[in-house]
Amino acid sequence: MNVFMKTSIAMIGATALLSLTPLAASAQEMAYPEKCKTEGMDMSKMGMSMGGDTKTGDMPKGEMTDYQKASMDGMKSMHMNMMQGMMKKDADVSFVCGMIAHHMGAISMSEVELKYGDNKEAKAMARKVIDAQKKEIAQMTKWVNKEAK
């Protein structure tokens, strides 16, 4: 492969990466559908502890790296939303709401990889996950808004 082609391919890759830069905020920008939320439930009292503070469900973050802190924050949000969705009385709505939260968690994890990871292959996988999960979240949210009572 000649130098011109290598340079062109590198420039195309760099352009693609730059177009993906705003992804860092996409999980936070995505709203968990209102019809998936369970009214009157205080999810903070559901005992979602993961080895840290049993009252708040928080991990002891003092010894964690920035990567680990970001990952744990995303997981905590995902689990809270999944629990909300799973409390719906309709099994179909419960499943779809739980999957929306799960997919939002996958996006959050992928964004953490894009921000902190170094491996090109892992970052490419993260981008694929984000693209696929966003499409599925849009489909599932449309279904929930139509079908949930």
Rank of each mutant, 00 (worst) to 15 (best):
V112C: 02
K115E: 08
M83Y: 11
M86D: 03
K128R: 05
M99V: 09
A124H: 07
M99R: 14
I130S: 09
S108M: 00
V96C: 01
K142M: 05
E111F: 05
S110I: 01
H102K: 12
E113C: 09
G98R: 00
M87V: 00
M109G: 13
K123G: 05
K115W: 01
H103K: 08
M83T: 07
M83E: 03
A101Q: 02
F95L: 13
S110Y: 05
K88M: 08
M140K: 10
G117P: 09
M104F: 08
K120F: 14
A124P: 09
I137Q: 06
Y116K: 00
T141M: 05
A138M: 08
D92Y: 00
S108R: 10
L114T: 08
K89Q: 13
M83C: 02
I107D: 00
M87K: 12
K128L: 05
A132Y: 10
I100P: 11
E113I: 13
A122D: 12
G117E: 03
A122G: 00
Q84Y: 08
K123I: 02
D90N: 15
M83R: 07
E121D: 12
K142P: 03
K89G: 06
E113T: 15
A126M: 03
E113N: 07
Q84M: 15
M125Y: 06
E121A: 13
K120M: 13
S108N: 10
S110P: 10
K134A: 14
K120Y: 11
M83G: 13
K135A: 14
D92H: 05
G105P: 02
V93H: 06
V96H: 11
C97W: 02
D92L: 04
V96P: 00
A138E: 14
F95Y: 14
A101G: 09
A101D: 03
A101C: 06
V129N: 08
D131F: 13
V112I: 10
I137S: 08
V93P: 02
M86E: 06
D118S: 14
K142S: 14
H103V: 01
V129D: 04
G98C: 05
V96E: 02
I100R: 06
E111M: 10
Y116P: 01
Q84E: 15
A91P: 15
A126E: 04
S108A: 15
M109T: 05
M83I: 02
G105R: 03
K88C: 03
G85C: 05
R127A: 15
M99D: 15
A126D: 03
K89D: 15
H103Q: 07
F95N: 12
A106H: 12
I130F: 11
H103C: 01
K88S: 13
I107G: 02
Q139C: 00
A122I: 13
A132S: 14
C97I: 05
A122M: 11
M109W: 04
R127C: 07
Q84I: 03
A106L: 02
T141Q: 13
V129H: 07
K123F: 09
K123Q: 13
Q84H: 13
Q133W: 00
V93Y: 08
